[in-house]
Design a protein around this nucleic acid. Structure first.
Lengths: 257, 257
DNA sequence: AACGGAGTTTGATAATATAAAACGAAAAGG
DNA sequence: CCTTTTCGTTTTATATTATCAAACTCCGTT
């Protein structure tokens, strides 16, 4: 049995704070743990030494310390989207035979940070590192649609709606209407707005802060697309995005209260 | 000496992950800790049992676990606004002689959760627990102005712009324009829109997630208010709000990287 | 096939975590 | 106002258990 008792006990003590009260007396802890208060005292002092525990100087009670918050931020910070997303994207690509892209927003453009090639031959030219405007791509729309008014305003200030195909959206009013629709539907579509003959569907990925931090997309030759297909693809993308988001901390809440 | 060695060692191991690499091999850890790898193994397994550590199944390396993030959220969640804000509000009240309010958003209304009476007699009726509409109060405007489009839309859906005074804003268009102005200026004003003869200035408080979670306000009889006074009050409120926000974790980042 | 490097398991012994009792201080209660 | 209880802390002895070393397994490499 490789479990070390004193460490185990220390960690169980930390658990107590969100199972019961956020501030606990030594006496309560020792009762709950079936340990002598002197033992609990030593454990608490050790935890306190590393700021996992703080003592309320007014009433002597103990509570969880700020170190946990710092450490928690560190964990989240080091969860990188690309490696977390990889296996999910591969799964989706295997299932559908299509190429899946992973894109983040950098300034006013999307940047492809990963792609998983499907078995079906793709007509789409894509390359990791390639940049793509937000106004004429599904991923771009998905990336900006859920921004706050302030952030969106900053992105659209002096934005140049360069026309890529006859279908490209070329003014702010139409683009804002389009983004409204993305918010309503939960997914974005590019209907030959970037490349003639290619349609693309994208959904956002969110992290622990609930902000959209990336988008995934699936591209199709336009002749293979119809209303039903769009809906199906969007659902699959949503499911995949949800799994990735969850693994990135989306929806993870404090364990109680 | 109340420090328990094995717990101390376990916690020092956790520290290693943000001092060096975010993924470490047992061998590296044992070298860094001057402990046998079998000892480290036991410690890691104990930490892993509580999800403080996760093992990368691909390469056997260990990294910090999600429990730290959950626990960190819990810590932040339990930092309650009211007690953190108290001393700052008292300071500001002492300095200005005015009554300061602390308000949070609950559904479509603000709720007064604390007030600090100033020495100057207040004409304003207020009470902790009292609710106030968002469309006719400075605090209400400050609370909703920085919401995302989605959240704001949810609040304003079927919103009733009940008129409290002749100056009350009574339609969505004007209210949205007003919120734009709040975002631009960084503070909100209520110019006799809720109570005749009373003007109120408010600024938002943000927490670690950078979301607005509360607002503080100062009320004045309208005859004591002019452009210069508004600016001065807004600056003082902003400074106070900034201090409270910081203490609530706003701007606190992961301990390294 | 043998080697080196990884993580894991086992078992003996020496280190140390635990509990009991005593202490001091503060709150509760008559 | 003094007593009593209740709290956190300190001390010390003994028995638990954390530690180390060695052996083991499972890779990938030579």
């Amino acid at each position: 049995m490789p479990i070390i008792q004193s460490v185990d006990r220390a960690l169980r003590i930390l658990d107590l704070f969100d199972e019961y009260e956020s501030e606990l007396k030594i006496t309560d802890i020792s009762a709950r743990m079936n340990l002598h208060k002197s033992t609990v005292h030593s454990l608490l002092k050790t935890l306190q030494h590393y700021n996992y525990i703080e003592q309320n100087i007014e009433n002597g009670k103990y509570k969880l310390g700020m170190k946990l918050f710092e450490r928690g931020n560190f964990v989240i910070h080091n969860l990188d989207i690309r490696s977390v997303a990889k296996k999910h994207l591969m799964e989706l690509s295997m299932k559908t035979g299509n190429t899946i892209h992973l894109v983040i927003l950098d300034g006013k453009e999307g940047v492809y940070i990963d792609k998983v090639e499907g078995s079906a031959a793709t007509i789409l030219y894509s390359r990791i590192g390639r940049r793509i405007p937000v106004h004429c791509s599904a991923v771009g729309k998905a990336l900006v649609a859920f921004k706050s008014q302030e952030e969106l305003a900053a992105i659209l200030k002096d934005y140049e709606y360069i026309s890529q195909t006859p279908k490209t959206i070329t003014n702010e009013e139409d683009f804002l209407t389009e983004l409204n629709n993305v918010r309503k539907e939960g997914f974005a579509v590019d209907n030959q707005e970037n490349e003639a003959g290619v349609s693309c569907i994208s959904v956002p990925i969110r992290d622990h802060s609930e902000h959209v931090i990336a988008a995934i997309s699936m591209s199709q030759p336009v002749h293979r697309i119809n209303k039903k297909a769009v809906k199906e693809i969007a659902e699959m993308l949503k499911a995949t995005a949800e799994n990735i988001s969850r693994e990135l901390g989306f929806g993870v809440k404090a364990s109680s209260i």
